[in-house]
Amino acid sequence: MHKKIKILSAVLVFWIALFIAWEWWYSFPKVRVIPVSEVNSKSLGIDSILHQAMSTYLLPGISVAIVKNDEVFYLNAFGYKNLLTKDSLTVESAIVVASVSKLFTALGLANTLNTKGISTHDPVSSLELKGKVSASSLAKLRFQDLLTHQSGVRDKNFSEMIFSSSKSQVLKEWGAEFLQNSSTYHTDSISYNYADSNYDLLGYLISQSENHDFHALIENSVLASSGMTNSKFVTAWPIEDNGITGYQKTFLWKRIEPKRISFPILPSPSSGLITTTKDMSIAITHLLRGQTGAFGKALGWLTIDGSKVPLGFQKTQIEGREWVGHYGGQAGYSSLLFYSKEAETGIFLFSNSRDKEDFRIEIARQIISYISPK
C-alpha cells in the first residue's frame, strides 16, 4: 500500500510539473509600453491612463473611442492583437465585442418590426410564423420579455454543453432545434435571467419572418445605413486574416496566455458582431443623436413607458450620472459601450483580455473623470 501511495504521488507531481512547464512555455510576459513622458493635452492624458492600465491589468491590447458634443473626441489603440505575430492593434483592427452585439440585434429587430406595425408589447405569434413557433409556449412571449431577459428562456447548462456537439450550428438549425425542445429551455418564470438564447431566438425569428439571412438583414437595416461599413455578424469563424487573439491571466505566473473564442451559433445574434473601434465611434455618435441619428426610429420603438433606457440596453452609474449601453465579455475578449445624453458623451472600450477584475468600467471611470471633472 505504501509503495502504491508513493507511485501515485510521483505521478501527481509529474503532471503538476508538466502543467507548470506547459503554462509557462505557452504564455507571454506582460506587454511593456512606453509611458507618456509629458502630458500637455487631453488626448495624451488618456494615452497615459491606457498605458498605465495595460501594465496594471496585463492587457495585450486596448482600444478606446470617445464621442463628445457630437464629435469624435478620442480614437486610439495600443498594444497587440496577436502576441505571437506582434501585429499591432489599431482602431481599424477587426475585434470581437461579444454581448455588445445585442444592441445591434435589438436595433435590427426594432427596424424590422416597426415596419410591420408590431410593438414591443405584442407577442411572438404576431409574426404569424407557422409550424412549431405557433405551437410552442414561446408564441405567447412578448418581444419586450425577450429583450429584457424576462422570458423564462435559458441557455444550455454545463452538463448539456458537455454532451452537445462542439461544432457551431447554423442559426436556422439552432432555431429549429430550440423550438422543438422549447419545453426544455423555457419556463413560465418572469424573473430576470440573463440568457444569450433570448437574442439568438429574436435573431432567428426575424430572419424567418423576413425570409432573409440574419447577418444580411442587420447589415442592411442597421450597419450599412449608419456608415458602419467594417462591421458584420460573422457566418464563419475564425474569419480569414482576422488575426485577433484573446488572452487571459495564467493560473500561476504573472503572465498571459491565449483564450480564444468559439461561437456555438453562426451567425450569433447575441455575441457574433465583428467590428472596429472606428466603427463603434460612428455607432456612439448615432446613439447620442437620438431621434435625429440613424438609429432614431429604432430607439423610439425600443423606448417604452417613458423609460430613459431602451429595451436591450443596460444601465450603469459613472461619475454620478446614468449611462446606458452594454457590457461585452467572452473568452479572452472584453468590451463596453455606454453613453450619456446628459453628459453628451459616449465611450467604447475594447481589450483582447478576459476581464475578471472589472477593469473595463474602472478604466472608463478614470477616463470620464479625467475629461469631465466635477
Rank of each mutant, 00 (worst) to 15 (best):
His2Lys: 11
Lys6Ile: 13
Lys6Phe: 09
Ile7Lys: 04
Ile7Phe: 05
Ser9Pro: 03
Leu12Phe: 08
Leu12Ser: 05
Val13Arg: 05
Phe14Ile: 08
Ile16His: 06
Ala17Asn: 06
Leu18Pro: 01
Ile20Val: 09
Trp24Lys: 06
Val31Glu: 00
Ile34Tyr: 06
Ile34Val: 08
Val36Asp: 04
Ser37Gln: 12
Asn40Leu: 12
Asn40Cys: 10
Ser41Gly: 04
Ser41Asn: 04
Ser41His: 04
Ser43Gln: 08
Ile49Asp: 10
Ala53Met: 11
Ala53Asn: 09
Thr56Ser: 11
Thr56Ile: 12
Thr56Asp: 13
Leu58Tyr: 12
Leu58Ala: 15
Leu58Thr: 06
Pro60Gly: 02
Gly61Glu: 00
Gly61Pro: 01
Asn69Arg: 10
Glu71Trp: 06
Glu71Tyr: 11
Leu75Glu: 09
Asn76Leu: 02
Lys81Arg: 15
Asn82Cys: 00
Leu83Met: 09
Lys86Met: 01
Leu89Gln: 04
Val91Met: 05
Glu92Gln: 15
Ala94Pro: 06
Ala94Ile: 13
Ser99Trp: 04
Phe104Thr: 10
Gly108Tyr: 03
Asn111Val: 08
Thr112Cys: 10
Thr112Gln: 09
Ser119Asp: 11
Ser119Glu: 10
Thr120Leu: 15
His121Asp: 09
Asp122Arg: 00
Leu127Ile: 11
Glu128Arg: 11
Lys132Cys: 05
Ser134Ile: 11
Ala139Asp: 01
Arg142Gly: 12
Gly152Tyr: 03
Val153Cys: 01
Lys156Phe: 11
Glu160Thr: 04
Met161Thr: 13
Ile162Thr: 06
Ser164Asp: 10
Ser164Pro: 00
Ser166Ala: 14
Ser166Gly: 11
Glu173His: 08
His186Glu: 10
His186Gly: 05
His186Pro: 02
Thr187Gln: 05
Ile190Arg: 13
Ala195Leu: 11
Ser197Ala: 15
Leu205Ser: 09
Ser209Glu: 14
Glu210Asn: 12
Asp213Gly: 15
Leu217Ala: 05
Ser225Ile: 06
Gly227Phe: 02
Thr229Lys: 14
Thr229Asn: 14
Ser231Glu: 07
Pro238Lys: 13
Asp241Gln: 15
Asp241Glu: 15
Gln248Gly: 07
Thr250Lys: 01
Leu252Arg: 02
Ser262Pro: 01
Pro264His: 04
Ser268Glu: 07
Gly272His: 09
Gly272Trp: 06
Ile274Phe: 07
Ile274Ser: 05
Leu288Tyr: 08
Arg289Asn: 14
Gln291Gly: 06
Gln291Val: 09
Ala294Pro: 00
Phe295Thr: 03
Gly296Leu: 07
Ala298Lys: 03
Asp305Thr: 04
Ser307Thr: 10
Val309Phe: 01
Gly312His: 07
Phe313Ala: 07
Thr316Gln: 14
Ile318Gln: 05
Glu322Leu: 10
Trp323Lys: 02
Val324Thr: 08
Gly328Lys: 04
Ser335Glu: 07
Leu336Cys: 05
Phe338Pro: 01
Lys341Phe: 08
Glu342Leu: 11
Glu344Ala: 12
Ile347Leu: 15
Ile347Pro: 02
Leu349Pro: 01
Asp355Gly: 02
Lys356Thr: 13
Asp358Cys: 04
Ala364His: 07
Arg365Ile: 01
Gln366Thr: 10
Ile367Gln: 13
Ile368Tyr: 09
Tyr370Thr: 04
Pro373Ala: 02
